[in-house]
Lab assay of single mutants.
Amino acid sequence: MAAAAAAGAGPEMVRGQVFDVGPRYTNLSYIGEGAYGMVCSAYDNVNKVRVAIKKISPFEHQTYCQRTLREIKILLRFRHENIIGINDIIRAPTIEQMKDVYIVQDLMETDLYKLLKTQHLSNDHICYFLYQILRGLKYIHSANVLHRDLKPSNLLLNTTCDLKICDFGLARVADPDHDHTGFLTEYVATRWYRAPEIMLNSKGYTKSIDIWSVGCILAEMLSNRPIFPGKHYLDQLNHILGILGSPSQEDLNCIINLKARNYLLSLPHKNKVPWNRLFPNADSKALDLLDKMLTFNPHKRIEVEQALAHPYLEQYYDPSDEPIAEAPFKFDMELDDLPKEKLKELIFEETARFQPGYRS
């Protein structure tokens, strides 16, 4: 834990890192770190609560700039109880001085990944967590956004079992017609939660990839272990087919990539493993919904509104309290091709509203 900075004593240090967030945020305490930044909790002297502050230093890398800009653009436009918001952003007053960006968010005690390492969940908890994931996802999908990296560590939890989806750095506007060349190379989302079509096709992607990830998360809540822990690309596919069985001819016809289709045709026939054999203690309604989410063919996979209306979630289902976005989200430009200098300018502009004396 960093010592509390005395008023006016300059930035606090946390594990050798400068955290320049005073005077409003003090009493910093280390939480963890990701690929390009550290997260601390801090005391907000204005709202009198502890908050989470993520320090991001992305400006050396085009990919990190892209992810940072995506996350900020999306989260500043989203407003939903099951999606983490941005409360404040701290950065230098000029673009030349801006080396880091500090993002202030609600402090959540833990995440689903940490929880599943230590606790076996009751059916009631599984049901409530799944409902909140789908409630947040309904809003995301209504904005025409794909999260693309749903996994237990991106689901934040607090002691009252509130759940918030975080990390929109890989999110995209849904565009089933656009052929994202190089899709697989830039697709760094965790393999275990990846839909089979991501490994088999490169053309376009749809909201059904997020539903697949939610199915993987439900299976993990039922058993405290990942359902498809593939060691590499082909191993991942083999794990999936080992449980779902061989795809039907109709399902194979959806695979545009001939090499991928021929690979699947070359494999020995596998039978589907019954879900109640894998999860003998699970609620039968939970397994019915799991089956509809972990469907090989993305066109037959359940959609988020149908999933919310499934009998497993009937005690929570309330369409009048499951809000959607006001308007579909649009990125003005494809960020993939922009140089990091341009992305830095866009991050600077996007964060201006939090600067003292800002006038829109």
Rank of each mutant, 00 (worst) to 15 (best):
D100F: 11
D111Y: 13
L234R: 02
K55F: 04
I103E: 09
H299M: 11
Q249Y: 06
Y102T: 04
E314V: 13
A325K: 03
F228W: 08
P58T: 15
H61E: 01
Y233N: 15
L116W: 03
Y64N: 15
Q306W: 04
L237A: 06
I72M: 13
L289N: 09
K259D: 01
Y36V: 15
L287E: 08
T185S: 14
K54D: 02
K344Y: 12
A171Y: 00
D210K: 10
N253Q: 07
A327N: 02
L115M: 09
S320P: 03
I95R: 04
N47V: 13
N238M: 11
L265P: 07
T68K: 11
Q62M: 13
F331V: 12
H80T: 07
L287R: 06
Y187C: 08
I31Q: 15
W212S: 07
N257R: 07
N154S: 11
K300Q: 09
I217A: 05
D321W: 07
N276S: 00
G10E: 12
K272C: 07
L115D: 03
F228T: 01
L116K: 08
D149M: 02
C216E: 09
T94A: 11
C65W: 15
A260Y: 00
V188I: 10
K114R: 11
I255N: 14
V104I: 12
L155S: 06
S320Y: 14
M38A: 12
E303M: 10
E96Q: 09
Y187G: 02
Q306N: 03
L130M: 14
N82V: 01
S57D: 00
F329T: 01
L290H: 01
D100R: 11
T118N: 02
D100G: 05
P268S: 13
S360V: 12
G215S: 04
I95P: 06
D288R: 02
F296I: 14
L252F: 03
S153K: 05
N276M: 02
P58Y: 15
R261W: 11
Q306V: 05
I255R: 02
E305T: 02
E197R: 12
S223V: 09
I140K: 08
K330G: 07
D251M: 06
S41R: 00
I86Q: 04
S208Q: 06
E322T: 02
S57F: 15
A7M: 13
N281Y: 15
T118A: 08
G357P: 04
I126T: 07
L234Y: 08
Q62H: 15
R225Y: 02
G215Q: 07
I95V: 04
R277T: 11
I347D: 05
L184D: 11
P339W: 02
D111E: 11
Y205R: 13
K73F: 09
D291S: 04
M13C: 08
V39A: 14
T206H: 13
G136Q: 00
V46D: 15
K54A: 04
H310S: 06
A307P: 08
V49S: 11
L170G: 04
K292N: 14
S142T: 13
A325V: 09
S360T: 14
D251S: 09
Q17P: 12
A2Q: 00
K344I: 05
F228Q: 00
A3Q: 12
T94E: 04
L200P: 00
M199H: 10
Y131F: 14
C216N: 01
H239K: 06
L237G: 10
C40G: 08
Y358I: 13
L150I: 02
I53G: 09
H80N: 11
F228K: 01
A309N: 04
Y25M: 01
L184S: 12
P268A: 00
C254Q: 07
A52Y: 03
G85Y: 13
I165D: 04
Y205M: 12
A325C: 00
R261T: 08
I133A: 00
L289K: 01
A6P: 05
G182P: 08
Y64C: 15
I302W: 08
T68P: 15
Q105N: 15
E71I: 01
T206K: 08
D44Q: 10
A282C: 08
N45W: 09
L112Y: 02
K117G: 10
N27V: 01
R67D: 04
T94S: 15
H125F: 05
T110S: 15
L335A: 08
E12T: 08
L335W: 08
N27Q: 00
D179P: 09
L116E: 07
R277Q: 06
N158W: 13
L252C: 08
A282Y: 02
S213K: 01
L146C: 03
A309E: 09
F183S: 09
P196R: 11
Y131Q: 02
G136S: 05
T118E: 05
I217W: 05
V145I: 05
T160C: 10
Q315M: 00
I198E: 04
D321E: 13
T190S: 15
A2P: 12
A327D: 14
I243Q: 05
A219R: 11
R50Y: 11
D318W: 01
P226N: 04
A325W: 04
P229C: 06
Y30L: 12
H299P: 07
E303I: 04
Q355V: 13
E96D: 13
Y316M: 05
N27M: 01
R194P: 07
R79N: 12
L184V: 04
P229G: 09
P226W: 06
D336H: 00
N158I: 15
G230Q: 00
I198Y: 05
L346V: 11
I140H: 05
E109D: 15
C161Y: 12
L163K: 00
Q105F: 10
F59A: 14
L130H: 00
I86A: 02
S246K: 02
R261A: 07
T159R: 06
S223Q: 10
N238W: 11
H299C: 09
A286Y: 06
S223H: 03
L294F: 03
D321S: 00
I89E: 02
A5G: 06
L116I: 03
L241R: 00
C254D: 08
L289E: 04
Y64L: 15
F296K: 02
P339N: 09
M38W: 10
M199T: 00
G182Q: 02
L163F: 01
T181P: 10
W192H: 03
Q236A: 06
D321R: 03
S213M: 04
D111N: 11
L267Q: 14
D167V: 15
P339L: 12
L163H: 02
R191H: 09
E322F: 00
K207S: 13
L150E: 02
T206A: 12
A35I: 07
H178A: 03
F348C: 11
E220P: 05
I86W: 14
S57I: 13
G32A: 10
R135T: 01
E322K: 11
G204A: 06
A9V: 10
E305L: 06
I133Y: 05
M221Y: 05
I240F: 15
I243K: 05
K270Y: 06
K270Q: 04
I89W: 05
T94M: 14
D162A: 08
I209C: 09
K114I: 15
S29H: 01
I95T: 01
N257Q: 12
L241G: 10
I84L: 10
A307C: 03
D177P: 12
R148E: 07
I126W: 07
G16V: 15
F168R: 07
D124H: 04
L290W: 05
G32Y: 03
P226R: 05
D88H: 04
V21L: 12
Q315E: 07
G8F: 01
E60A: 13
L294E: 11
S248T: 14
I89S: 10
I198S: 08
I324Q: 06
I90S: 00
N123G: 13
R277V: 10
Y36R: 15
Q355G: 02
Q249P: 09
L287H: 07
R194Y: 05
A219Y: 07
K99D: 03
N276C: 07
T160I: 11
I217Y: 10
P298F: 03
R191W: 06
L244I: 05
V14Y: 09
R148M: 10
L112D: 04
F19M: 04
K99F: 03
I86S: 12
R91E: 02
A282K: 04
Q97N: 06
L346T: 05
S320M: 11
S266H: 04
H141R: 10
S360P: 14
K207F: 09
L244S: 10
D175V: 14
P196K: 05
I255W: 10
I95Y: 05
T181S: 15
D291A: 10
F168A: 09
E33Y: 02
V14R: 09
I126V: 12
D283M: 02
H239P: 10
E71D: 11
E303P: 00
D291P: 03
M293N: 02
N224G: 10
